[in-house]
Amino acid sequence: MERLIHLSDLDIDYSSLSDNFKDLTHLAAKVAGTEISLVNLIDSYTQWTIGNHGLDVDQTPREDTVCQYTIMSDDQLEVPDLTADERFNKKDFVNDPMSLRYYFGIPLKDREGINIGALCVMDTKFKTMSPEKIELLKIIAGEIVNRLKSYKAMDDLKSQVNEANESKKKVAHDIRGPLAGIIGLSQIISEQGKSANIDEVMDFINLIHSGSKSILDLADEILSEDKEVVNQHSNTQFHLSSFRDKLKELYGPQAISKQLQLQFNVNQETQYIPFSKNKLLQITGNLISNAIKFTPVGGKVTVGLDLIVKSDKNVLSISVSDNGVGISKDEIASILEGNSHTTKGTSGEKGYGFGLSLVKHLIEKLEGQLEIRSELNQGTTFEVYLPQNNS
Rank of each mutant, 00 (worst) to 15 (best):
H173I: 08
S18E: 14
I50H: 01
S37T: 05
Q259V: 04
Y69H: 14
Q232I: 09
S8C: 04
A180L: 13
S167G: 08
I114Y: 11
T284H: 03
F294M: 04
E35I: 01
I139F: 11
N235F: 13
D58K: 12
E249D: 13
H233L: 12
A141Y: 04
T34V: 01
K90L: 12
H53F: 15
N95S: 14
S159W: 09
D23K: 13
P296S: 14
P131G: 11
G326V: 06
Q378L: 13
M129S: 07
K194V: 04
V39Q: 01
I332Y: 02
L223M: 13
L77R: 08
L38G: 03
N286S: 15
K194N: 07
E383V: 12
S15R: 09
D123T: 05
G252L: 11
L376K: 15
E269R: 12
D9W: 00
S374Q: 05
L218P: 06
S73I: 03
V121N: 07
G252C: 06
S391Y: 11
F204N: 15
N235S: 15
I183E: 08
I5W: 04
N162Q: 11
L362K: 01
T346E: 11
S130W: 04
S257F: 09
S234M: 10
H239R: 00
E135K: 15
Q160Y: 07
L316C: 06
G177Q: 15
S374G: 01
R87N: 08
N390D: 07
Q378N: 09
V145P: 00
Q254V: 08
L10Q: 08
G345S: 04
K310M: 11
V145H: 00
I139P: 02
L7V: 04
D217N: 12
A255T: 05
D9T: 01
L386D: 01
P253M: 03
S334Q: 14
V359H: 05
D312W: 07
V31K: 08
M202Q: 14
E163K: 14
T65N: 03
L108F: 06
T343R: 13
L179N: 11
Y103H: 07
E371T: 13
P131D: 12
A141S: 15
L356V: 00
V320K: 07
L240I: 02
L216S: 14
S317L: 12
N389T: 13
D322P: 02
H361Y: 15
D9Q: 07
E78P: 05
T46F: 01
R373A: 13
I182D: 07
E221S: 14
K277L: 04
L55H: 13
S224Y: 04
Q268A: 13
I205N: 15
R62S: 04
K365V: 09
E112D: 14
H209V: 06
G105L: 07
K227M: 05
R3F: 00
L185F: 12
N339R: 12
V121C: 10
L119Q: 03
G353H: 01
K279N: 09
S44F: 00
E191Y: 09
N40A: 13
A153T: 10
K213V: 08
Y14I: 07
D306V: 01
Q388T: 00
S16W: 03
F354K: 12
E143C: 05
G345C: 02
I189C: 08
Q263W: 06
K277F: 03
S234A: 10
